[in-house]
């Protein structure tokens, strides 16, 4: 058991190092446009992801439960979710430059995880629920997809702002394509965010006798959900799509981060167990 937790610790550190290396290479790839850098970056993030996965699994066995119950565990899984969604989208849309904008997000969240306490504490009764497991694992995927969308929408805004820049023109896909990719990521994220809220409501009903009580964490996930709903509708509205939608995609991810980090540290909530 102790051994497993030591393994998780080392593998977590290896993963974070590989992610940093990958981030630097993606950056070089984007700036000096060397295909090789891009290829190595993709390779490194995959290796990092494998180490990261093993670390999380080892923690699960080491702690004897699903490793999704406190700030550290959720932060590391959150970064894992973004890395996973990124690899899927990068592969699907064969679009490397995305890494330059998404790996920093992975890195920041890994860094946040590294600052959290890694103690394995026993679960209080309210947290012992399969609905909680579902609730958090859907959040990992949903938030991961939103992270990818945020990176891509950021590229959209950059490209839109520097539309005359030769460099941007050459190294970035068209605005339409960026818009399409962020839309596909948000569609996935929105489906999963809705699942997060539905499973969370079912769990809350069983644990606390109410499925929705406007607790700050609930309210902020509601706000996040609304922001992405607005994004989805802006895309369908003549004259409001494109740049406006991209801005909402970035705001949406800020809300995601606030729901996850800000609410626990800045606002009172029954969710802030950790």
């Amino acid at each position: 058991m102790e051994n497993l937790l030591q393994i998780e610790n080392s593998f977590f550190n290896i993963a974070i190092s590989l992610y940093i290396a990958s981030m630097v290479l993606y950056f070089l790839f984007f700036v000096i446009k060397n295909e090789n850098h891009g290829r190595y970056a993709t390779f490194l993030i995959k290796i990092g992801f494998i180490f990261h996965t093993i670390a999380i699994v080892a923690r699960g066995f080491g702690a004897g439960r699903v490793p999704l119950t406190n700030q550290y565990e959720f932060a590391t899984s959150f970064a894992w979710g973004i890395a996973l969604c990124f690899m899927v989208f990068e592969h699907k849309y064969s679009f490397r430059a995305m890494g330059t904008f998404v790996t920093p997000i992975v890195f920041i969240i890994m860094g946040y995880a590294a600052m959290q306490s890694k103690d394995v504490r026993p679960l209080m009764p309210a947290l012992q629920s399969h609905w909680l497991t579902l609730h958090v694992s859907t959040a990992v995927i949903g938030y991961g997809a939103f992270g990818v969308a945020c990176g891509v929408s950021f590229m959209y805004l950059l490209k839109d702002k520097f539309s005359k820049d030769k460099f941007m023109e050459k190294h970035m896909p068209s605005l339409e394509r960026l818009d399409l990719i962020s839309y596909r990521a948000i569609a996935l994220g929105f489906l999963f965010l809705t699942l997060v809220m539905v499973t969370g409501a079912i769990w809350a009903e069983q644990a606390w006798g109410r499925y929705w009580a406007w607790d700050p964490k609930e309210t902020w996930s509601f706000i996040t959900w609304i922001i992405y709903a607005i994004y989805l509708h802006l895309r369908l509205t003549k004259g409001w799509s494109g740049k406006r939608a991209a801005i909402f995609s970035v705001i949406g991810f800020i809300c995601v981060l606030f729901t996850y980090i800000g609410v626990n540290t800045l606002l009172p909530s029954i969710h802030s167990y950790a």
Binding site: T219, W220, A229, I230, H233, L234, W240, P268
Partner: peptide, 23 residues
């Protein structure tokens, strides 16, 4: 739909109030 979007935005923004003021 435009009216719906504006309404959603206003609901989203105003519901922040209940998270910063203890209820």
């Amino acid at each position: 739909m435009k009216f719906g979007i504006i309404l959603l935005l206003v609901i989203g923004i105003t519901s922040i109030a209940g998270t910063v003021i203890p209820q």
